[in-house]
Simulated scan of single mutants.
Amino acid sequence: MTTGEPEGMRMAEQGQVDPARSQVFGEVAELYDAARPGYADALVAEVLAYAALGGRAAVEVGAGTGKATLPFAALGTRLVCIEPDPRMAEVLRRNTEPYPGVRVHAGRFEEWQPDGRSFGLLLAAMSWHWVDQQRRWELAHAALAPGGAVALFWNPQGIRDPELHAALAEVDHRHGITDSPHKDLTSAYGEEAGNWAGLPGWPEDECRRDGRFTDLRSVRYRQQQHYDTDRYLGYLASLSRYRLLAPDRREQVLADTARVLDAHGGGIDMDLLSDLFLARAR
């Protein structure tokens, strides 16, 4: 997605973001691929156990450069990966070359056609909020075989050091940045999946209201993540909030952020929270 992920999710859910924002990542597809964190092995195992594919294929919505695709493909999952940005899709094709069971479709999920195929799993990693809110559950249900699984997940991050958090907050305030990954301390995310400082967007209520899905579950995985200064700046530069800044302003905020990180040991320690939502088509 992303921005400082939950905040960007809220904006997309409330219709405050032009859909074109979801495709600014292609400007820096290689940087996105190198800088973005991956997903917990336990999350991948949980999804596959829940889906019980039995040889059926999966479809991935908004696959990006394959951060979520690769761990599933490595375990033998056959995937159709849908990615709206052709620049991201190009990197995705390269990254998935070792896996003949992966097919890449460049286009929007709303325009993609299953062509009579029924999938055992639909997954979306930090991309579901970009899908048309009025149609997404209908489209998901149409793509799935009876009993097929939906797996939606996000990687919010919380900073662990209050002193560093305060120093970075001063930089963000000075530059008008409101949704960076270091915006919140880890404590703001509570203890349960989807508890994101009161922000809307967690899909459980919407899915329950739709009525075509059952066996709803929410699971959280926690990992410690360290970024040195250069890697963290690359991560920030890959986010839509920073991509949309004028180049000179983006360079200035990144330079000021770098000075703070270097003054605090040359990096940042964060808690990476992989929050997973599961449901099953009736």
Results as ranks from 00 to 15, higher is better:
residue 91 V to C: 03
residue 202 W to P: 11
residue 176 G to M: 07
residue 164 L to C: 02
residue 189 Y to P: 12
residue 213 F to L: 11
residue 41 D to M: 01
residue 167 A to T: 09
residue 213 F to Y: 07
residue 142 A to I: 03
residue 128 W to T: 06
residue 58 A to C: 11
residue 150 V to W: 02
residue 208 R to E: 12
residue 213 F to N: 08
residue 126 M to S: 14
residue 219 V to R: 15
residue 120 G to I: 00
residue 180 S to C: 08
residue 145 A to H: 07
residue 74 A to E: 15
residue 112 W to G: 08
residue 122 L to N: 05
residue 18 D to F: 13
residue 183 K to R: 14
residue 193 A to F: 03
residue 41 D to Y: 03
residue 195 N to I: 00
residue 32 Y to P: 00
residue 260 V to T: 13
residue 127 S to G: 15
residue 28 V to F: 01
residue 160 R to A: 07
residue 22 S to H: 11
residue 59 V to Y: 02
residue 158 G to K: 07
residue 241 R to A: 06
residue 218 S to V: 01
residue 97 E to C: 00
residue 169 A to S: 15
residue 21 R to V: 14
residue 3 T to S: 15
residue 93 R to D: 05
residue 164 L to A: 01
residue 97 E to H: 01
residue 8 G to W: 03
residue 280 R to G: 07
residue 251 E to C: 08
residue 187 S to Y: 02
residue 243 R to H: 08
residue 48 L to I: 02
residue 229 T to P: 10
residue 251 E to D: 15
residue 222 R to L: 12
residue 167 A to D: 14
residue 110 E to R: 11
residue 253 V to N: 05
residue 63 A to F: 04
residue 69 T to K: 05
residue 26 G to H: 08
residue 8 G to D: 09
residue 114 P to W: 06
residue 268 I to V: 15
residue 68 A to G: 15
residue 82 I to Q: 07
residue 230 D to V: 07
residue 204 E to K: 12
residue 100 P to L: 08
residue 93 R to K: 08
residue 237 A to Y: 00
residue 44 V to K: 02
residue 190 G to H: 13
residue 36 R to K: 04
residue 216 L to H: 13
residue 112 W to P: 06
residue 193 A to C: 02
residue 153 F to C: 14
residue 106 A to P: 13
residue 209 R to W: 08
residue 226 H to A: 09
residue 138 E to H: 05
residue 220 R to L: 05
residue 91 V to H: 04
residue 26 G to V: 05
residue 239 L to Q: 12
residue 35 A to K: 03
residue 270 M to Q: 15
residue 125 A to S: 14
residue 13 E to V: 12
residue 264 H to I: 05
residue 41 D to C: 00
residue 39 Y to D: 14
residue 94 R to F: 04
residue 194 G to A: 14
residue 64 G to N: 11
residue 269 D to H: 09
residue 106 A to S: 15
residue 177 I to C: 07
residue 177 I to K: 02
residue 173 H to W: 14
residue 41 D to P: 11
residue 9 M to S: 11
residue 186 T to L: 06
residue 172 D to F: 08
residue 141 H to K: 09
residue 13 E to G: 14
residue 227 Y to T: 03
residue 161 D to W: 00
residue 250 R to T: 12
residue 148 G to W: 05
residue 198 G to P: 06
residue 157 Q to D: 06
residue 244 L to V: 10
residue 132 D to W: 03
residue 90 E to P: 01
residue 237 A to K: 10
